[in-house]
Design a protein around this nucleic acid. Structure first.
Length: 917
RNA sequence: GCCGGGGUGGCGAAAUUGGCAGACGCGAUGGACUCAAAAUCCAUUGGACCUUGGUCCGUGCGGGUUCAAGUCCCGCCCCCGGCACCA
């Protein structure tokens, strides 16, 4: 018996499969299709454990479906535009394209080492002009169908760098690299009108997605029913507010506008101008997240202006406060402190009047001065003119009688109308960056906008550019200069698209990555679409998955699927409902988290430049005290040569220029910034956090099959958990044992019918368990079942009591069941057993329930719910027989002696509970 | 703060959905083999208490429902993911 040599075997089969085209997937209308998809990776540099964790079970599932007789498509590609490439460009002077393509090349090799059944002929890379040509084409379609439009949105603006920053580049309201403050600024940008699809996106009929994901999307969309009411300022300007409680309008005692609201300027009176402006500047320094976080202490200022409540003509003050967001609703609210808790807190803090308009059911009337919180329960409307006496309940929208009455009255009197509002906002797709798909639009001389002609697509990113921080597109004359359809000089749009745009349609490009006349070949689409199973991280629950659903619906409405539908019809396939949703089944894996680690304690010398420290030397010293140097503290974060150091007096940004010395005594020789260890929480692995585990070393040591098996065995797949490399030896031993079983020269001694039956029973129990568990993505219990079979086969091998036929059936079944999880070793052993075709094209084993059935079962006998005895009973035992056996037990007699048997609960054949008292 | 998920031995986890808590592994301890080590094999392994068979306790915390609760209900605590420019 040869020793198990994983590296030779894995290399051999990967090459053979590739040469034989084993995983090439082609349209075959005679066979049922299965489109399995796993989220495509961002080419961050190296494949980490999280990628293996996401992809190898997805691969195993696709392999199982193939053995079950499906024609399986399982493609792979790269989501190749994005911020890290530009960070590398700015900080290390590498062109984003070079950085990206080098990473892709490395990751392709690493992906091959997984032994997955990816069909590489179908690879798509989103930063290739042949790909983003169609991303641009989709934008153009959206524009022409009125879905893409220009609007204003807030950005993180760095006045120092004169550029827009991503949220992750902003720490504590400051730029992570320079330590300079960042402000919120309104900017004209491109949007997609996803809100138009809000109601359809709320319907999940016909798709099998986890309830948690559906719940998160529903909450994200946040549909609420109510009314729009128009207030007027004393100057006559209209302020439209949306409210879910129009019935409480008579209790509105003030209004609150978002600080950025356009009417604030005209409302602010001369004596209030200074306070108002100061408040607006302060809130510009806070992100929306920070503004919403604030719960206890409300902030806000009075504008000096007043508005008229249209329902009763009352004059009410208008305030601004940052808990009102311009991007939600209309950016203005009417405040009813008596019946809304946030308004109540605001009113109490600023001593604004509170007028109750609901008489609480079964209680005394509310008295303003005695109220400690707002009242939101049921009751009867009071102080409310035309709707006085109407009942109010906890129901939402028109289902609440008082709301219905208020809406009817508003519509009759013309003061307002029924309305639906969504928390969902339109999708801001503009990015003021270089490394993204260009937006194919021209700004004409006359101020108009027009799309680039189809013949001129794609608008290609210029390659010869320099990086300082600002997008080089803004200053690139060659890129900027264009000519419109009339032949007049025009300026090219310099915003690029959000990378979510690239990943909102990539599974269509996989169908035909080199197709030139459309985003995808209708002949392929008609057969393969839609995606049958999509797997990926739950962190994409809302954005990527919601955008993808929106995209497909918009594509359908723009007629993009018409050709594919026609081809479907020609093959007799009914296309109805197939283009409403992208992914029929969705399953999420959890995350492999990094292990916790504290950062190096650093002593830094250098010079302070405003908020930033430019280092001349950085030294690691675990014992440093605060006065050991200019800056002393734990390294929290590092991006390239920019450090975030936690000192006793707060976070400090440190820049480490090339000339600075780095000294790490534990690492001999010359040290550099990249060797510094920064703080790691137990949190998801990502390149930008630097807490990734590289699987290459583990593959070299144990082999891909063992790494795959261990990832599927050690975690509950949907949950994930912190990585711990120690346990992998258990999976390694299992794979080694499979090798020993597969290469064993089995020669039985005296064959026992009982031993043979027993092993066969286990084999068929294992088939049933593995089949069900793998279908449900329960990899850990599937592997555990295979380990149990391993244990029994080892016993059988030693004892030599089972027949050769039973042994062979057990061995072959084990190889077939394990093939999706550990594809190489099973293929090698399958051939060792004398087979000439691939194990991966064998039919999936089917369990025989008669063989799997146990004849006898251990029945537990309880007294008052506690186990006091056990009996081995026939699996078909009746309740009466079970009860008789239980009461006949000597041990049970000790417990029932002198007591009355009050009740006997029989759950044959597993349990009898005798209640005594 | 809001939304979603989770908390079970020293560790990763199981538990057919209300019916033997801890399957399958890791680690640990003892033993076999060995000059020795590694590998391998055997045994034990939730805790406490008693003379080897048992008793009691035990699934984040506090209550409740039930013959029976990790599982259902009520109230808390802690951890993780997302929160719209990381992807």
């Amino acid at each position: 018996m040869a020793a198990y040599d994983h590296s030779t075997i894995e290399k051999k089969w990967q090459d053979r499969w590739e040469a034989d085209g084993l995983y090439r997937s082609t349209v075959d209308w005679a066979r049922p299709k299965h489109y399995a998809l796993t989220m495509l990776p961002y080419p961050s540099g190296d494949l980490h454990m999280g990628h293996w964790y996401a992809m190898t079970p997805s691969d195993a599932r696709a392999r199982m479906m193939r053995m079950k007789g499906y024609n399986v498509l399982f493609p792979m590609g790269f989501d190749a535009f994005g911020l890290p490439a530009e960070n590398a460009a700015v900080q290390r002077n590498v062109h984003p394209a070079k950085w990206t393509y080098e990473n892709i090349e490395r990751m392709r090799t690493q992906l091959r080492s997984m032994g997955a059944m990816f069909d590489w002929e179908r690879e798509a890379v989103s930063c290739e002009p042949s790909y983003y040509r169609w991303t641009e084409w989709f934008f153009k379609e959206m524009f022409e169908h009125g879905i893409a439009y220009r609007g204003e949105a807030m950005v993180n603006w760095s006045p120092t760098l004169q550029t827009v920053l991503a949220n992750e580049q902003v720490i504590d309201g400051r730029d992570e690299r320079t330590g300079q403050p960042v402000v919120q600024k309104l900017m004209e940008q491109w949007f997609f009108a996803i809100t138009r699809y809000a109601d359809e996106l709320l319907a999940f009929e016909g798709i099998d997605w986890p309830d948690a994901i559906k719940a998160m999307q529903r909450n994200w969309i946040g549909r609420s029913e109510g009314a729009e009411v128009t207030f007027r300022t004393e100057a006559g300007d209209e302020i439209v507010v949306f409210t879910t409680r129009p019935d409480t309008l008579w209790g509105a005692t003030f209004m609150v506008l978002a600080p950025e609201h356009p009417l604030v300027d005209s409302l602010a009176t001369a004596d209030r101008r200074e306070v108002v402006d100061a408040y607006r500047v302060a809130s510009a320094g806070r992100s929306e997240l920070e503004r919403m976080e604030e719960t206890k202490e409300k902030t806000g200022v009075f504008t000096g202006g007043f508005a008229i409540n249209p329902v009763n003509g009352e004059r009410i003050p208008v305030w601004i406060a940052d808990y009102v967001l311009l991007s939600y609703g209309t950016g203005a609210i009417m405040a009813v402190p008596a019946h809304d808790q946030r308004d109540f807190e605001f009113a109490r803090q600023f001593e604004l009047p509170i007028i109750p308009v609901i008489h609480p059911q079964g209680e005394e009337p509310l008295v303003e001065s005695e109220m400690e919180e707002s009242f939101v329960g049921p009751g009867v409307m009071i102080n409310s003119g035309p709707i006085n006496g109407v009942e109010t309940t906890l129901a939402k929208g028109r289902a609440n009688p008082s709301v219905a009455a208020a809406i009817d009255w508003l519509e009759e009197s013309g003061a307002g109308s029924e309305a639906v509002n969504y928390r969902l906002r339109d999708w801001l797709i503009s990015r003021q960056r270089y490394w993204g798909s260009p937006i194919p639009m021209l700004h004409r001389n006359d101020g108009g906008l027009e799309p680039v002609a189809d013949a001129d697509l794609p608008v290609v990113l210029p390659e010869d550019v320099a990086f300082e921080g600002r997008s080089p597109l803004v200053t690139n004359a060659e890129f900027l200069t264009a000519v419109d359809s009339e032949g007049v000089a025009a300026r090219r749009e310099t915003d690029t698209m959000d990378t979510f745009m690239c990943s909102s349609w990539y599974w269509f490009r996989y169908l035909s990555p080199s197709f030139e006349s459309a985003p995808f070949d209708p002949e392929e689409a008609a057969y393969w679409l839609p995606v049958d199973v999509y797997t990926g991280g739950a962190e994409h629950a809302v954005m990527h998955l919601l955008y993808s659903r929106f995209f497909v619906k918009a594509m359908r409405d723009m007629g993009v699927f018409e050709d594919a539908e026609r081809v479907m019809g020609e093959h007799g396939r009914d296309s109805s409902g197939l283009f409403d949703e992208p992914f029929m089944v969705l399953r999420n894996q959890g995350q492999i988290l990094g292990e916790e680690r504290s950062g190096d304690r650093l002593v830094i010398e250098g010079v302070r430049e405003d908020e930033l420290v430019v280092a001349s030397s950085v030294r690691v010293d675990p014992d440093a005290t605060p006065d050991s140097g200019l800056i002393v503290g734990e390294l929290i974060r590092r991006t390239e040569n920019a450090l975030q150091v936690q000192t006793d007096s707060g976070l400090v940004a440190v820049k480490v220029p090339d000339g600075a010395t780095v000294e790490i005594s534990s690492i001999p020789g010359t040290n550099d910034v990249t060797q510094l260890k920064h703080h790691l929480d137990i949190e998801r692995m990502s390149k930008s956090k630097g807490n990734t585990v590289n699987p290459d070393e583990l593959v070299a040591e144990y082999g891909a099959d063992t790494v795959r098996t261990h990832l599927m065995f050690a975690f509950e797949w949907q949950k994930g958990g912190p990585w711990d490399s120690r346990g992998i030896v258990g999976s390694s031993r299992f794979i080694e044992d499979v090798w020993k079983i597969g290469t064993a020269d089995y020669r039985p001694g005296e064959v026992s019918a009982e031993a043979s039956t027993s092993l066969r029973r286990r084999v068929h129990q294992t088939i049933a368990k593995v089949d069900a568990d793998m279908f449900d993505f329960k990899w850990n219990t599937a592997v555990a079942a295979l380990m149990t079979l391993r244990n029994e086969m080892q016993d059988a091998l030693r004892a030599g009591l089972v027949s050769v036929d039973v042994w062979t059936e057990a061995t072959e079944t084990m190889l077939k069941l394990l093939a999706p999880i550990a594809p190489h070793i099973t293929e090698e052993l399958w051939h060792t057993l004398g087979n000439t075709d691939s194990v991966h094209v064998q039919p999936w084993p089917e369990a025989d329930a008669n063989i799997a059935r146990e004849d006898t079962v251990t029945m537990v006998i309880q007294i008052n719910g506690k186990v006091r005895d056990r009996a081995e009973v026939d699996a078909e035992i009746t309740a009466e027989e079970a009860e008789a056996i239980a009461l006949a037990s000597a041990k049970i007699a000790e417990w029932t002696d002198g007591k009355t048997v009050r009740k006997v609960i029989a759950r044959p054949p597993k349990l009898i509970n005798i209640v005594v008292g």
